[in-house]
Design a protein around this nucleic acid. Structure first.
Lengths: 250, 250
DNA sequence: ACGACCGTGTCACTGTGTGGCACGGTTTGC
DNA sequence: GCAAACCGTGCCACACAGTGACACGGTCGT
C-alpha cells in the first residue's frame, strides 16, 4: 500500500516541520516534487492539513489530527483525574511533571506540565521510550505481577540509550524490588545522560498499573538527599490518582 | 488518491469505534471486507493502529496519532499558559472550562477541564463549531478588527444550529459591541438548546485574538444574575493569559 | 450438527498513482 | 540589471499498485 504509506509519512513530516512548502518537503523525504505536491493537495482536500492564509503555499496541520489524537485510548479518564495531582506536584516542586501510559514494551508520554526553572527538560507528547530506561517505566514494571514484568524484560534484548542504562535483567529485577518497597523509582541518566527522574505507578480498579506520574529534571538539580522527598510526593500523588480510578488498597 | 482517502477514513473510523474488528468496520464504512482488512493491516504496519493483546483481531489507535495531534499549531504555548488559569476557573466555579482556538470560520476545542457537577456538558477535544454559535467564537470575533469580523460573518450564510442561534449579521455585530464593552460573551442555547456558555478572548503579542477561554454549563444552572459574575472571572483569567503571551494593554 | 458469523488469503483485471519533464513567477547572487 | 536558481504548478504515457468477488478454515450459538 505504497501511496498510503507515503501519505502518512508526509503527514508526519508536515507535523514536524510545519509550516512547510512543497520543495522543502520533497527534499526532506527524498520524494519527487510532483508526488509530494499531490500528497499535500490530497491531505488538504481530506481536511488533515491546510495552507496558511498569509502563506498560501506552506502547509500545517488542521485540528483533524488533534481530534484523532485525543481519542487515543486511556487518555480521557486518566488525564482527568491526574491533571489536578500533576498541578499540585508541579507547584510543590517547581519541576516538570509527566503523565505516561504503558504501550507494548514502551511508556508513552500523554501529558505534561512544564516546570518553572529556566533550565528544564524538553519532551514531546506522544513520544515513547523503552520501559527499562525511564522512572515511569520502572514504576510500572514494579507494579505489575513479577512474572509479567519478567516476560516483558526478557522478550527482547534490552537497549542501552546511555552508558548508565541498566540492561541486565537480574539487576533490573533487584531494582524493581527496591521500587516496590519504596513506592517510587529513581533514574539518573538512564535515558539521557543529564536527566534524572522519579516516578510512581497509578493503578486501576484491577490493581494493575495503568499509568505513571513522574518528575523529570536535570541530574545536577537532583542530589540523592532529595530522592526520598520527591519520591514520596510523587508516590502520594500517584496513590491519590489510583484511588480516584477505583483502586482500593489490599 | 482513492486509497489514501480510504485509509484515512478507516483511521478516523477506528478512532471513533475502537476497539473494532474487520467485519464491523467494513459494514460501517460500506467497504468490501478484504479492502478493509488490507487497510487495517497497512495502518498497523505503519504504526498508527494496533490489535489488542487479548483481542488480537480488534484494532485501536496507537500513540502515533497522539503524537501527531499534539503537534497541532498553537497548542504548545497557549496550553501551557492557559492550563493554570483554567484550573483556577474550574476551582472557583466548579464548571467545565474550555480552551478553544480559531481555525478558518470555526472555533476548535483544544483543551478542557471537566466540572464537578454530576450533570455536565460533554464535548470532544478537536471538535469545532461555527464562530457565531459559541461564546468562545463571539469573544474572538469581538476581539478582532471590526472589518475582519464582518468579513468572516458575511463570507457564508450563517448556519442555525438551534432556534436560538442568531443568524442575522447586523444583530450579531450589535452583540459584538456589547461583548467588547463587557469583556466577555454570553450564549444560551445557541449551539445546543440546553447549554449556556461564557467566553473571553485571549490575545497574542499583536493584540489579535489567538484563543478563547470559556465556561460551559447547563442553561438551567446559569440564571442571568450569574452572567456578570462568571463573565468577569473568565475575562480576568483570559487577560492574565494574554499578558503571559506577551500582550500589553494599549 | 448445522448455519451464521468471524478473520484470513488468493488472484486476474483495471484504473490509479507515478515521476520525469516543462512552464511561468519570484527571489537570490553577482 | 540580468542570469541563474529557486519556488509552486501542471501535464501525460506507462506500469504497477490497489481493488473486490470469492473461497477457506475456525468458532460461536442454537
Amino acid at each position: 500500500m505504497r501511496s498510503v504509506s507515503v501519505a502518512l509519512a508526509v503527514l508526519e513530516a508536515v507535523a514536524e516541520q510545519q509550516p512547510v512548502g512543497v520543495s522543502e518537503l520533497s527534499r526532506a523525504m527524498q520524494l519527487p516534487k510532483s508526488t509530494t505536491q499531490r500528497m499535500l493537495l490530497t491531505l488538504g482536500q481530506l481536511g488533515w492539513i491546510r495552507a496558511g492564509a498569509e502563506e498560501p503555499t506552506r502547509w500545517s496541520l488542521t485540528s483533524k489530527a488533534l481530534s484523532i489524537g485525543s481519542r487515543h485510548r486511556g487518555d480521557e479518564e486518566i488525564r482527568r483525574v491526574a491533571l489536578p495531582a500533576m498541578h499540585t506536584l508541579s507547584a510543590a516542586t517547581g519541576e516538570t511533571v509527566h503523565l505516561s501510559v504503558p504501550e507494548e514494551r514502551r511508556v508513552v508520554l500523554i501529558e505534561k506540565i512544564e516546570g518553572v526553572h529556566p533550565v528544564r527538560t524538553h519532551t514531546t507528547i506522544g513520544n515513547g521510550a523503552p520501559l527499562h530506561t525511564t522512572a515511569s517505566g520502572k514504576a510500572i514494571l514494579a507494579a505489575m505481577p513479577e512474572a509479567q514484568a519478567r516476560a516483558l524484560l526478557v522478550a527482547v534484548p534490552l537497549e542501552a540509550l546511555t552508558e548508565h542504562t541498566q540492561t541486565d535483567v537480574a539487576a533490573l529485577q533487584e531494582e524493581l524490588v527496591r521500587v516496590r518497597r519504596d513506592g517510587y523509582a529513581v533514574t539518573v541518566g538512564t535515558r539521557h545522560p543529564e536527566i534524572a527522574a522519579v516516578g510512581a505507578a497509578v493503578l486501576g480498579t484491577s490493581g494493575l498499573p495503568v499509568a505513571s506520574l513522574s518528575l523529570s529534571l536535570p541530574a545536577h538539580r537532583f542530589p540523592q538527599p532529595l530522592w526520598s522527598e520527591f519520591g514520596e510526593q510523587v508516590a502520594r500523588a500517584a496513590t491519590e490518582c489510583s484511588r480516584q480510578l477505583g483502586w482500593r488498597p489490599a
